[in-house]
């Protein structure tokens, strides 16, 4: 039993079958790729799995537990974290403020305590602040700590995003087009981060259009088109699959 099992997952929007009977088994500790032409339904699958949109039918089994119908924040607390296509970051917060938000779940005091700024709350803030500084230092972002994230160079911005989503030590990452807009250096650095995550025991599923990255990084790839799985296999198998090539004809992705 894999860490994630999708059983006949389907989503209808009105009459449109965005995802149709999608089956997937994701083994623990692997890096998976989810690819397909624009509009194939990849992000919809992520939305369904992470609880952001309700399923029409089918099951999502995470660590043996059926998480269909669970609220997204509950699923996140179980260890399933997803990122978004647009920068998954708080643009108007500084680097420090961004990472502090991820610590709110570790607070002892509740909202009312924080409103009254009780001793417990003050301690929470101190602890969060010191954890945050340590994390920022370890990522080499110290000089950026009070800078508004939207003013950060792109590579650093991605680091903060990564810090945000990995702060809860998730076991399953759903990364939605994480390499978009990166240059070769940044791709290299971020790929290393992904491998590091995997080595630390996490499982990763990546939606990506940059085929080179997908082929280099992913151990197994699933291909979606029009909401349905059309192929699945190792990078080599996928590269030579006629159906896949046909699906991509006309788009500007090159293998």
């Amino acid at each position: 039993m894999g860490i994630l099992e999708l059983e006949n997952l389907s989503k209808n929007f009105g009459g449109l079958k965005a995802v149709n009977n999608f089956n997937l088994t994701v083994e623990k500790g692997c890096i998976y790729g989810l690819i397909g032409p624009n509009g194939a339904g990849k992000s919809t699958v992520f939305n369904l799995v992470s609880g952001f949109i309700p399923t029409t039918s089918g099951n999502v089994i995470f660590n043996g537990q059926n998480i269909v119908g669970m609220k997204p924040n509950k699923i996140a607390k179980l260890g399933l974290i997803r990122t978004f296509q647009e920068p998954t970051i708080y643009k108007e917060f500084s680097v420090t403020e961004n990472i502090e938000v991820a610590h709110y779940l570790h607070h002892e005091a509740n909202d009312f305590g924080h409103f009254l700024n009780t001793e417990k709350a003050k301690k929470d803030n101190e602890v969060a602040r010191s954890h945050t500084h340590k994390l920022i230092d370890s990522l080499g972002l110290t000089k950026f700590s009070d800078l508004l994230v939207e003013n950060l160079p792109y590579g650093q911005l991605r680091l903060v995003q990564f810090a945000l989503c990995s702060s809860g030590n998730p076991t399953l990452f759903l990364l939605d087009e994480p390499f978009t807009g990166m240059n070769l250096e940044e791709i290299d650095a971020f790929s290393k981060l992904v491998l590091l995550l995997r080595d630390n025991g996490a499982t990763i599923i990546i939606i990506e259009h940059n085929m080179k990255v997908v082929m280099d990084l992913c151990e197994k790839i699933t291909v979606l088109n029009f909401g349905e799985k059309i192929a699945e296999g190792t990078p080599n198998e996928i590269q030579s699959n006629a159906l896949v090539i046909e699906a991509y004809l006309g788009s500007d992705t090159t293998f």
């Binding site: 992470s50 952001f52 609220k71 997204p72 924040n73 996140a76 607390k77 974290i81 997803r82 990122t83 978004f84 998954t88 970051i89 708080y90 643009k91 108007e92 917060f93 938000v101 991820a102 709110y104 779940l105 945000l164 989503c165 702060s167 809860g168």
Partner: peptide, 16 residues
């Protein structure tokens, strides 16, 4: 403020 900026992100880091 985090809800205003990126509600999805806030949910995806576990906040209700």
């Amino acid at each position: 403020s985090s809800l205003r900026q990126h509600e999805g992100l806030t949910a995806s880091i576990g906040i209700d």
